[in-house]
Amino acid sequence: MADAVSEGNPREDRRKRPGRWYGFILPVAILLFWEVAAQTGLAPRLLFPAPSQVFRALVRLTASGELPMHMAISLRRIGFGFVAGALPGIVLGLAMGWSPAVRVLADPTVAAMYSIPRLALFPLLIIVFGLGEPAMVALVALGMFFPTLINSMAGVRSIHEMYFEVAQSYGAGAWKVLTRVVLPGSLPMVFTGLRLALGHSLVLVIGAEFISARNGIGGFLWVAWETFRTVHVYAGLVVSALFGIVFTTGLRHLERRLLPWAEGLLHR
């Protein structure tokens, strides 16, 4: 038996998962190849500037404050969109999940609105709000409203009826049912909604900025293309990817902190 262990069981070896560093091999290889190709002129530098060049541009644009400014502007639009979209979405979603009356009342409208691609609403929003911040924020807000609403509603409905009975049997009033059952029980799904909403918000803020702004990450990217500064285009792409990564990892950490009990249910 001991021999078998020391020699290693081939079937066991195959099942063993390689370390995390394994996943870095491919991107590093691609970047290296890209760098070499760009430096040697194998790839047209106008279309594929060397990664090192993009990196230097990132450093320069960050030091000059230009990129941070654009990032802050986009972040602010997402932030306002969050307040105007995600928060009402969570509140209405919880209400629809909890109360059949609210659900029956609002569901057809929500379902009809949900089927419209959000970006298609932008011209209408510009007509209503005019060209500027409010239209962009409204678009982001709409993009965050629906995923948070639908997932919060599903979150409440996923709470087993038994938990409501337990609470009721121990004399919980509406407020206690809300704070001790509805909110905590739906929180995992609320987070799923937020994750989707933040993803949408990034797409929509960049889309809106393409069309109606010269600033923000979308505006920066658009100006970069108009002036044909490919290096800046790549820098903008890196930054928007960074946004996505920060959003998802930030949310995951928040979720781990707020929902220690969901570890056993969600991350299996």
């Binding site: 938990y163 004399g171 905590p184 929180l187």
Partner: peptide, 19 residues
């Protein structure tokens, strides 16, 4: 019927909390 989102102590004292 324990609430998965409450600790064992919170669950056990739930009835008292409601009172």
């Amino acid at each position: 019927g324990l609430f998965p989102w409450m600790t064992v102590l919170e669950n056990i004292t739930f009835g008292l909390e409601m009172r």
